[in-house]
Design a protein around this nucleic acid. Structure first.
Lengths: 212, 212
DNA sequence: TGTACATCAGTGAACGCGCGTTCACTGATGTAC
DNA sequence: TGTACATCAGTGAACGCGCGTTCACTGATGTAC
């Protein structure tokens, strides 16, 4: 071989890592193979020595981003007192820094909607990593039964993801800060006045179509 | 003129309406001008008699979708008792029907992340409609001061949007239903155990970069 | 240890294709007389 | 009321261009002897 086995693995990892940043910045279809390879210091022709297709790279890059987030939360939890763990994660997630740097941020608000439209294979991988992320978040919530923690983790992640999407739409002005603050407070402050449920709860009578 | 003034306006509106559905289904870049025109029963050559550019249609289509959602919420609120208004909206939003039919659903979870990456002009329009949507949602929350209602509306919309994004990633199985349920309960049930805030609150010490 | 050969990561030109956009043209209808 | 002309929404071919992918080739290094 021209290069050692390690060399190829390192190159492969470098492509994935760089692509992972750029895809979160530009979207799953927002940057081409040639530019992604250039980012890794290579030319586009070598791409298929590493990946079967562009989609294969998207899957790897996305997986990489999700694993890094999940691992980060695990570490953050490890070095924080149990009752402060979720709050620490929320406070590091709902910041202007995270909002303004999607390339190094959570892949869910950056790529979630797009990946949900990809092939079944891609979606399955994505769903698997999402579940791992939720499990890790649930593990940071002490003092509640496993299932309740999981449910709370799902809702917290949803609020975090939604807040970041809204804040990014709003840009970087006062409106955007207001959104970030609302998300933080909703997750960190006790709810003063919860919304009362309607008598006939779950599937609303109006929900025979979805014209929102 | 070949056709009456009304005829052109009708055609224009038909293109926007159909495109609004297809773009939510396929993404802001997921469908081409030719296909969008075919959907409206026309050929692609006539496109530029109606729009300056593809982006101009995306802006109109998105605006149309947002206005429909906001108007729907206003009507839904009108025909519901004040204390049930937000709950009614949440219950019609967080359903499998909405999850499985993005084309006729809320534009924020479908297009938000993508639009946040578009030109400054597009983002400004989007941000404006988002604020209108939030204001309308806030108007459905009775018995709290204007500013508190606005904050609550932001957090509620964030949770709704995030829940739908997560549920769409998860597909349509049990995991996805679980996510929808967690989002509904978080918004409709009193919070049993709120997350305690860490002493040094807002900007976490760990938040000097955004590696989530 | 030294030499000849095989390997294959990476190069850069080329491919086919679909896209947004342009343009000459059409023909039904509005308008002027 | 009838006729000639002007208008312009819509058609369909064509345009550049960028994209994902393919391919013949290179040349540094691993391997066999």
């Amino acid at each position: 071989m021209r290069y050692s086995r390690e060399h190829k693995l390192e190159t492969h990892a470098r492509i994935v890592k760089k692509a992972s940043v750029r895809l979160r910045e530009k979207g799953a279809h927002g940057i081409g193979v040639a530019d992604l390879m250039k980012d890794a210091g290579l030319t586009h022709g070598g791409f298929y020595a590493h990946f079967d297709s562009r989609e294969a790279l998207v899957i790897e890059a996305f997986t990489h981003a999700m694993d890094r987030s999940t691992e980060r939360w695990r570490k953050l939890g490890e070095q924080t007192a149990p009752e402060k763990r979720l709050a620490t994660i929320v406070n590091s997630y709902l910041t202007p820094i995270h909002r303004d740097d999607p390339g190094h941020g959570c892949a869910v608000p950056a790529l979630g909607a797009e990946i949900a439209r990809e092939s079944a294979k891609t979606r399955r991988v994505f769903a698997g990593r999402l579940e791992q992320m939720i499990d890790m978040l649930a593990a940071q919530i002490p003092g509640v039964p496993r299932k309740a923690a999981r449910k709370q983790a799902m809702a917290a992640l949803a609020t975090m993801v939604g807040t970041l999407v809204l804040a990014r739409i709003a840009g970087s002005g006062e409106f955007s800060e207001e959104i970030l603050g609302a998300g933080r407070d909703a997750l960190l402050k006790p709810t003063a006045a919860p919304v009362p449920r309607p008598r006939k709860s779950r599937p609303s009578k109006a929900a025979t179509s979805a014209p929102h």
